[in-house]
């Protein structure tokens, strides 16, 4: 309770009612969930970039199986809608981990893990353990979501980075070769440093895409902004302290504004970075078509 006059909500009116309404525990959770979105973005972006880098390098590898893995990973996002992947992957990941742990930690391995439609890993194999405090469960679920996001957006990033690697002028690489550099040296000293400039337009676009994908957290079961907007906006009867009609439209318009602001700010910042990086660089096509 933020204000003392909020003790008896049903007697309030007008602005007082609104100020009490907007400071309830549920609303505080709602405001907190905006932070969840920002944390997700901050954590996912570098992890996805790392996955993308791995994918792009693997896709160029001279070792055939590695190359196939890289190429398949990059092709995946072009074929499968991300939401399908989300729905499927997060369960697969959770169960897969517990399946592995089942064989490491459980004593009785006579029974199959999957039987009669149930997934029966022994208690010791549960992640997190059933007795763990709620906060641990929360963090684990959030980590699963971050990992899932990173896999999908890593595949996007791999596409961008591998395009950027191809965009580095061949002459640069050939010159390095004529200086007697090994392929490894060429990669580390010439290709990768130059690649970033070419990758930047694609990566900043990817950042925007990532922002716009965050409402999918809701589908992964995280109590994010969409969850709270649904929960708070729904019609409330007299069972609740602050009864009100269906206000979902207003809550969702609020979310719309939040996302528009977030993308706008990102756009301005990324534009600045891009102009700075481009200064003095011979980017003939100025970031290709767009």
């Amino acid at each position: 309770m933020m204000f003392s006059f909020c003790a008896d909500p049903k007697s309030l009116e007008g602005l007082q009612w609104l100020s009490c309404y907007l400071t309830t525990g549920t609303h505080m959770s709602f405001y907190g969930s905006f932070l969840t979105v920002l944390v997700l973005l901050a954590v996912t972006a570098p992890v996805a970039l790392a996955f993308g880098f791995g994918g792009a390098v693997a896709g160029r590898s001279h070792v055939a199986p590695l190359r196939w893995i890289g190429k398949t990973y990059m092709a995946m996002v072009r074929g499968i809608p991300d939401i399908v992947f989300f729905l499927f992957f997060i369960v697969a990941l959770d169960q897969g981990l517990e399946y592995l742990f089942h064989f490491v930690r459980c004593e009785d391995l006579s029974q199959p893990v999957r039987q009669a439609g149930e997934f029966r890993a022994c208690p010791a194999a549960k992640i997190p353990p059933g007795s763990a405090p709620p906060a641990i469960h929360q963090i684990y679920n959030f980590a699963l979501a971050v990992f899932t996001f990173a896999i999908v957006f890593g595949a996007f990033a791999a596409n961008v980075l591998s395009g950027a690697m191809q965009a580095v002028p061949r002459a640069q690489l050939e010159t390095a070769e004529s200086f007697g550099m090994t392929p490894r040296q060429i990669n580390r000293r010439i290709l990768i440093p130059q690649m970033w400039v070419y990758a930047l337009p694609g990566l900043s676009n990817l950042w925007m895409v990532l922002i716009k994908a965050t409402p999918l957290l809701f589908i992964l079961g995280i109590e994010d902004v969409v969850y709270w907007a649904q929960q708070l906006g729904a019609m409330k009867t007299q069972t609740f302290s602050y009864p009100h009609p269906d206000w979902r439209l207003w809550y969702f318009l609020g979310l719309l504004v939040f996302y528009l602001l977030l993308t706008k700010v990102s756009e301005v910042v990324l534009d600045r970075i891009m102009t700075r990086l481009r200064r003095g660089l011979p980017m003939a096509e100025n970031g290709a078509t767009a």
Binding site: I90, Q138, G221, I222
Partner: peptide, 13 residues
């Protein structure tokens, strides 16, 4: 809308 994995534990009773 489907949430496949479950989510937040709210409070120990």
């Amino acid at each position: 809308m489907k949430k496949l994995i479950l989510t937040t534990a709210i409070l120990a009773l």
